[in-house]
């Protein structure tokens, strides 16, 4: 269970973490400056288990993985948005940051709502207003990567061909 932090549409990677902070790849270091321009109160106040609620096309812009790494480093549990930019979507899966596609939840949740997310079933419950929402299911090979904790961990114990089996 955690608190919702809401963001607008087309949240780009420079807004998630400005380029000048991308000189490190340390998740905790990056997390210190995550959303520093669009929501400076986020980094000092976020708690483990909180969720990011975004708008359409979340994570557009650069291919830099610093953006999902910074969010994962801030210990947010997952992102909920109606849609993601393509590279951000892949990057988040690859580094093991859970992302859920759920237009209903993204439209209904407001900042500070208490949110409970079941990553396995895609069930999202809003304890503040009593609503619940169902996220779109992910393709099985994406789930394989997510369950392994990211593609790097997957490859430690598997051959890449096994992804498609």
């Amino acid at each position: 269970m955690g608190k919702a932090w809401t963001f607008g549409e087309n949240m780009n990677t420079d807004e998630i973490i400005p380029g000048r902070y991308n000189i490190t790849i340390d998740p905790l270091e990056l997390a210190r400056n995550v959303f520093c321009e669009v929501k400076p109160e986020y980094a000092p106040n976020v708690k483990p288990g909180d969720v990011i609620v975004g708008g359409q096309n979340f994570g557009c812009g650069s291919s830099r993985e610093h953006a999902p790494i910074a969010i994962k480093g801030s210990q947010a549990k997952c992102i909920i948005a109606p849609s993601y930019a393509r590279i951000f979507f892949r990057n988040a899966i690859n580094i093991g940051l859970p992302i859920m596609e759920c237009p209903d939840a993204a439209a209904d949740i407001t900042e500070g709502d208490e949110i409970d997310v079941d990553l396995a079933t895609g069930q999202i419950r809003n304890l503040t207003n009593g609503h619940s929402y169902q996220a779109n299911p992910l393709p099985t090979f994406v789930i394989k990567i997510a369950e392994a904790g990211g593609i790097v961990n997957f490859l430690k114990n598997h051959d890449i061909q096994e992804l498609m089996k």
């Binding site: 291919s63 990057n91 690859n94 580094i95 090979f141 990211g150 593609i151 790097v152 890449i160």
Partner: peptide, 18 residues
Amino acid sequence: AGLGSTEIGVAWVTGKCW
């Protein structure tokens, strides 16, 4: 197409991409 760095590392060892 643009991809994240992790997938580049993956492609270095597999020569492949999904």
